[in-house]
Design a protein around this nucleic acid. Structure first.
Lengths: 112, 112
DNA sequence: GTCGATATATCATAATGTGATATATCAATA
DNA sequence: TATTGATATATCACATTATGATATATCGAC
């Protein structure tokens, strides 16, 4: 499981970031990622569910069965404390990369 | 070729970031990535050369044959203007993600 | 009544990542 | 002098991940 101590894949990062905002079901994650990334990151259903399976197995995301009033069930995903920790670590890693880029003269034109 | 308009993979990003600092041969990229990421990102030879091939094909990286004094040849890689542009775009994307994370209350404890 | 949005999921295929392995040179050092 | 570790370049098989077409179903709008 790559997810535990290594850098998160772009897809996993976006899923975690969406769940950091609020608990969501699958389709809600799709929409949240689209909104948060302003359409820049395209997450399809295949990538979404494959990542959710891995994130669940790694304990970064939890799942609750939501029973609707009409008996219909819906799955809701949420960030676990481990997932929050992983996300924070990833954001710090990203900040470090941005800082490194800032330290590079030729890149500073539109990066600052 | 995923590399052109989509988010860069972590490996591609680190390679570009290493080349933004200075022109390097393959082994030099390995060392530079290690140094820049403070050992956090592990780049093996397989990932390196596979990525270089793709980055060359996508025109983000260029290659020059360096002839040494003893006739030995060494390959040197450099960032093209397209690669610089792609790297800048990627850094902006990362900054946006960091900003989104910062906007999320529960994450702010150690992300600011 | 059919179209688009919501909602969940699987599948085959494609793209990527991994690290062991290979080869070779060089300098140090035991 | 033998061998070890760093430099340097690369390929390979295998594993992991991403992609988006496809499937199914409900719902409200038109």
């Amino acid at each position: 499981m790559e997810v535990k101590d290594n850098p998160l894949s772009n897809a996993a990062l976006h899923i975690l970031l969406a769940l950091a905002e609020s608990n969501l079901h699958g389709y809600g994650i799709l929409l949240a990622v689209k909104r948060q990334s302003e359409g820049q990151f395209k997450l399809g259903p295949g990538t979404l569910y494959a990542n959710l399976d891995r994130l669940l197995a790694a304990g970064l995301v939890g799942e609750t069965e939501r029973r609707m009033k009409d008996g219909e069930k819906r799955r809701e995903y949420h960030l676990t404390s481990g997932g929050e920790k992983a996300l924070r670590a990833e954001i710090r890693r990203l900040q470090q990369i941005v800082a490194t880029a800032r330290g590079l003269g030729q890149l500073n034109k539109s990066v600052g």
